[in-house]
Design a protein around this nucleic acid. Sequence first.
DNA 1: GTGAAAGCGCTAACAA
DNA 2: TTGTTAGCGCTTTCAC
Lengths: 356, 356
Amino acid sequence: MANNPSKKNPPEENGKVIPLIKGRRATSYDVARLAGVSQSAVSRCFKPGSSISGKMRERVMKAAKELEYQPNAIARGLITQRSNLVAVLVSGRLNLYYPEALFKITEELSAAGLRALLFTVESEEDAETVIEQAWQFQVDGVISASHMSQAQYELLEKRKIPVVFFNRYFADHPNTVVYCDPSEQIDSLAKQLAELGHTRAALISGPSENMVSRERTRMTKASLARFNIDLVAEVQGDFSYESGAAGLQSIKQQNGNTPSVIVCINDMMGMGCMDEARSVLGLSVPSDLSIVSFDGIGMSQFSSYELTTVRQPIGRMSEAAVRMITERVERPDQSHEKRVFEGAVIPGGSIARAPS
Amino acid sequence: MANNPSKKNPPEENGKVIPLIKGRRATSYDVARLAGVSQSAVSRCFKPGSSISGKMRERVMKAAKELEYQPNAIARGLITQRSNLVAVLVSGRLNLYYPEALFKITEELSAAGLRALLFTVESEEDAETVIEQAWQFQVDGVISASHMSQAQYELLEKRKIPVVFFNRYFADHPNTVVYCDPSEQIDSLAKQLAELGHTRAALISGPSENMVSRERTRMTKASLARFNIDLVAEVQGDFSYESGAAGLQSIKQQNGNTPSVIVCINDMMGMGCMDEARSVLGLSVPSDLSIVSFDGIGMSQFSSYELTTVRQPIGRMSEAAVRMITERVERPDQSHEKRVFEGAVIPGGSIARAPS
DNA sequence: GTGAAAGCGCTAACAA
DNA sequence: TTGTTAGCGCTTTCAC
């Protein structure tokens, strides 16, 4: 095939070994030439589990070291049809309001020998282009922690790119999912609130298209009802601190019974809500107003907040997501799996007996 | 070269056009066959600026659309020697204590047509393996917002991989850098503190190997001295909330003059320090104790904190970093550049007249 | 403007 | 165990 002189296999050329054409990075051919072996022998040395003699390995490795040779992962990917790249789709929201998550996922991917190709997606159009990009870069799989439409998911499926959803899924479609189910914890919190004399609650939910928000909202309503706590107001936020603060304001402006406890669908809004209650409305939390929320991010336990919240086991969830993506890459036709982790209540200090 | 039937250029085979071998993803050959043109024509259609007729383009694009063809970026990278991949090196610290940064960088890369290959580096050994990984994946460049030793940097230089340092640099080595210089702002804050009657300050610095921490520390000391404010204590933290709290404790335990103002080298420690002052020591901030810090992260302005801090223009810095990396990829031999942005004081509410 | 052909650096099937 | 060879999917001369 080749008439590039550097590709000829005879180990030496006109009697001289030229270690490396200046400025070019060493290829397996360069190493082969220096070691006086075939190029495929070099390739084998870098593939674990290949049958190769100790002598050969030694010679090759010596030459490789000398030339600072490292196999070209791009070329390898081209032939093996495995890029070892995983697209990680996150929204700005996720990283700002839950910075631990992205970091954990990346670390776990790394530990599994995969690289994270990071994509930020803010809108459905973003998701569109991101999916095309991921496809162009031949990613082995996708971990989606951001919005994705069902059509987009189906496109990926059709293209045989495994997808693991992180904290979201399509109910009416088979998909591989890692998820946190806080229903038990919500229930126990509701019970606790009832025992503390709370009878009127308000809810600050997240964006309605967000799965986590919808589920937490649904579970919260169920649990409150179960323990005879009225939901006297419900407002929608966008997961941000500001929207938590604004949410409390609009709850207060609604006529009728004022709630003695606010459930915020994530910690960041819980913090906004708490700050608004204290600094603007002059309320004392928890004695005038109790607040509970979800996520268990680091900040929620800062002593200014100490939110009573339902933590997600983000480390285990990340590990699971990565394990699932590698599994689906190995066995694409395997049936789907949904791994659901329980939450855990962080007691915090943002709930107390309802004011009388 | 090829005897793979799908590679034969004759557009049709035994009279039938087979749109796509089932399950395989379409290649430029498939598109060529369907469109009845040569494979190279397809390639040209996807390269902007190629000379190609309207008719041809139309035919090819139609076929491409039908087959959902997208060029394989990996194969392209192999031949063009450009992966369009940029390694982004961040520490967990960065993302936890400054979540805005990574996000901005990724977005800017994306806008420049580059993909972020995300690496987390916690230690010098991590950096070692990360650099090898980046090299294997043929990244076009590296944006380093994490620790990197000079030897590691020199290795990358030797391999002709452009590096842009984000908020760090080697003083005695030419390098391309985007940086924030808060000295003016520190000076004006010091002046303001002096005018408010402060004469005793303490400092909570960051890890000594961290450039940003060292520089901020140095500048702070200079400015305090300039305005005759004594530095009565200096303790070292690790940028975390907890270390800010612990830092205040150890300052308090040191005998001698108690400071009326604490300078924290980043916001996260400022928040820890403030919380510790309020909830544990029972001090009122700012009337009993003033606090100033650096970064200007979103959280620092939550109403529980409202830190007086020196903000970094992180958006502009990210944009600059990406622009610099693309420039260095285009022209690797161009001389280095250092882009230094000024900070900006966020007035906040954490400083007040020194208690008498 | 278009097509033929080479080859980027690697892996893998096959032969020796 | 080792070497030979084809070819992954693309870009890029080079003819025409």
